[in-house]
């Protein structure tokens, strides 16, 4: 689908496909919830939406046991080192979904204490717009990430195959 340079040059071996399939259906999310978006994240895991139907029910609060970090909420400059540290503690391959306007770009807080998008310091695979995104939107984002894992299009794969990380300069 969306290979940054439009090429499909690398071979997806069987093992990779297998691994992708396994990974995609057993994402262990680590919700990094800080603000309003975290409240909406709670809706996603509770009765009405029930994220477990997509194989991602084991919400882990410990970075060592998770491979998907969902950044939900505003990240401030004071919080940034913590986010970075937690990301670094996660096991590879690790994926990041940034949920909501604040995590993606800073949203309407163009302000002195707010990080203008978490991709300033960690690579982001999927951006989910909304303020807060509806639960459906987040689940849509998770499904999109599953596709990307299957097709080897995540930041992890890009780095592995030496493709430049394009997001850090975008926006």
């Amino acid at each position: 689908m969306r290979q940054p340079d439009g090429s499909s040059s690398f071979l997806t071996t069987r093992v990779d496909a297998m691994l992708g399939w396994v990974r995609k259906n057993s994402l262990w999310p680590l919700p990094f919830g800080t603000a309003c978006c975290a409240i909406e994240f709670m809706s996603v895991v509770s009765s009405h939406y029930d994220l477990s139907r997509f194989g991602a029910e084991v919400v882990r609060f410990s970075p060592r046991q998770a491979d998907l970090m969902i950044v939900a909420g505003t990240i401030t400059d004071k919080m940034a080192p913590v986010v970075k540290r937690i990301y670094e503690q996660m096991a590879e391959p690790r994926y990041v979904i940034s949920m909501g306007a604040c995590a993606c770009t800073g949203g309407f807080y163009r302000a002195y204490h707010v990080v203008q998008g978490v991709d300033e310091f960690i690579p982001v695979d999927v951006y989910v717009p909304g303020c807060p995104p509806t639960p459906e939107a987040l689940m849509h984002g998770i499904l999109k990430l599953q596709d990307m894992i299957q097709n080897g299009e995540t930041q992890h794969d890009r780095l592995k195959h030496g493709k430049p990380d394009t997001t850090a300069t975008a926006g």
């Binding site: 993606c104 999109k144 990307m148 975008a170």
Partner: peptide
């Protein structure tokens, strides 16, 4: 339409 997700920031503009 609220189910959106982007893989690049530039896609969202």
């Amino acid at each position: 339409q609220h189910e959106m997700a982007f893989s690049e920031r530039s896609e969202a503009v």
